[in-house]
Amino acid sequence: MRTALFWIFSVMAVGSALGVVGSLRSPINSALSLVLSMLALAGLYVLLEAQFVGLIQVMVYAGAIVVLFLFVIMLLNLRGSGAGSAESRPIGKAAGAVVAVGAVLWLVRRLAASRAPWPEVDPTYGTTRAIGEALYTDYVLSVQVAGVLLLAGIIAAVVLAKKKID
């Protein structure tokens, strides 16, 4: 059952990631592929018994970030722009593909050496309670810094998007 779910979610995640990069017609297709990829990744997180991270993945990525992307695409009324002549540069494409395939093959060879099985974890592993307790005790400084960062981000977004820059 878990093996089948792993393959379903993995194929979904990688296939829709290809859809994000490969859909030349409209950025909206890319954004919708991105939602599918994020949801598949949330499934993989749950398979890894990280329920909290999976939940946050669905809420923050599929629910907020992609909606923000769609808002901007529709606000700017973009239709397939950027897919014109500048999109076809054979040397850059070939170099990029070679580098990416080479990096993946190298990584797979390095990782294939370690075929360790999964360790046993206690039932509280990855639950909201366990992560919340860790976040508000050992990692409370990170939470504070994240809050300041979010505030700075809000202010920056409002200032940048508000008016024309001279």
Binding site: A13, A17, V20, V21, P27, K93, A100
Partner: peptide, 25 residues
């Protein structure tokens, strides 16, 4: 391996696409 594949696809997207929004995705 799944993570490496998705990362490589993302890196390819940044290198090959010229649309800023798709690069950002």
């Amino acid at each position: 391996v799944v993570a490496a594949l998705i990362f490589a696809i993302g890196a390819l997207g940044v290198m090959l696409r010229r649309n800023m929004i798709v690069m950002f995705m």
